[in-house]
């Protein structure tokens, strides 16, 4: 009856197949054949010998859903040991996020806004950008979005600084070892394409759902990629002749790295920092799906209740934050760029 019956009959596996056969549930195609409307057209085709198709012929072969159930059981089995390792390792992330959220939201507005403007001025020394930042935060205040915007901002700041702290050393290591680069590149590709929920939902089994590190991990895993890639690229692009000259002067590896390679790679690394900030902003709404506070919550509320205005205003707020962070980071990084100073 099933297409691949002959395979098991001929190889003498029939007894093995039927040994402990349990009747599997009737499938839709079996029901359709009972209706008798489909002229048996489906019987003429040769289906791909997938697990499900083979299961029809031989009950001892597991169905695909048994495979997925096996993956689930496997995860649940190693869950406790994973938790033992990962939970303490990631705990500082929770503390940092909690601390940043508390610091930004507990301080009164007349401290936070001037502070942010002052920091902008210190880091950029550009009047236009400072005025723009002031206008944006006053605008958030006027439309009662200051608190959520500050929550988003504090999450972004923690996650991007951690991404840079971790990403730059990884990028440097990658630039010095071709083998490490070959290993890392597919991992980086995967981090950028794997849908966040695929790893976020299993993470809830490991950590409590109330932990802020859940969304912290989601943001960092996504946002760390450009800084690693561009650090690696920047260092590899440093002119070979310059390195040769440095070697000729008797520089040690460390001197070469700190005195030649990193300064010359700085424009690329800075582009990476900028991209990391933008990427973490892009994750704000996804992070809110795992309970991150901030503008993302309002976007989700707008979507869920068809309150288009709420969603659009919050979305526009995210864009404003993105522009502020982009301008500030570019201007600030430009000031530390040695290639810029000489001009």
């Amino acid at each position: 009856m099933a297409t691949y019956d002959f395979l098991f009959d001929k190889t003498g596996l029939r007894d093995w197949c039927d040994a402990d056969a349990v009747a599997s549930p009737m499938s839709m195609s079996q029901l359709l054949s009972q209706v008798g409307n489909d002229d048996g057209t489906s019987g003429n085709t040769l289906p791909f010998p997938s697990l499900d198709t083979l299961h029809e012929a031989c009950a001892a072969i597991p169905q695909t859903r048994d495979v997925t159930a096996g993956v689930e059981d496997g995860f649940l089995a190693i869950k406790d040991s994973l938790k033992f390792v990962l939970d303490p390792l990631t705990q500082p992330l929770s503390w940092m996020l909690d601390g940043a959220l508390y610091a930004f939201t507990a301080a009164p507005w007349w401290v936070v806004i001037p502070l942010l403007i002052w920091v902008t001025w210190l880091s950029t020394k550009k009047r236009g950008i400072t005025v723009f930042v002031a206008a944006v935060f006053l605008f958030f205040g006027v439309i009662d979005h200051l608190e959520v915007a500050l929550q988003t901002l504090s999450i972004i700041m923690v996650c991007t600084s951690l991404s840079v702290l971790l990403g730059v050393p990884i990028g440097i290591l990658m630039s010095r070892s071709d083998r490490l680069q070959r290993v890392m590149l597919p991992i980086l590709d995967m981090l950028q394409t794997l849908p966040s929920f695929v790893y976020l939902i299993p993470l809830i089994f490991l950590f409590s759902v109330t932990e802020p590190k859940l969304y912290g991990i989601a943001i960092i895993l996504y946002a760390i990629v450009p800084i690693i890639r561009l650090t690696d690229l920047g260092i590899r692009l440093v002119d070979k002749d310059v390195i040769e000259a440095a070697t000729a002067f008797g520089m040690t590896d460390r001197q070469k790295l700190l005195g030649v390679q990193i300064p010359l790679a700085l424009p690329n690394i800075m582009a990476g920092v900028n991209q990391t900030i933008m990427m973490s902003l892009a994750m704000v709404v996804i992070a809110s799906l795992v309970s991150a506070p901030g503008l993302g919550v309002l976007v989700l509320r707008g979507i869920r209740n068809l309150e288009l205005g709420v969603g659009l205003v919050a979305g526009f707020g995210i864009v404003l934050l993105a522009v502020v962070l982009d301008r500030c980071s570019k201007a600030a990084l430009q000031r530390v760029d040695p290639t810029n100073k000489s001009r």
Partner: peptide, 15 residues
């Protein structure tokens, strides 16, 4: 604890 989505609510039960 305010959940962010139905998915995390369901996973919290399963966990």
């Amino acid at each position: 604890f305010d959940h962010g989505s139905g998915e995390t609510l369901a996973t919290a039960i399963a966990a």
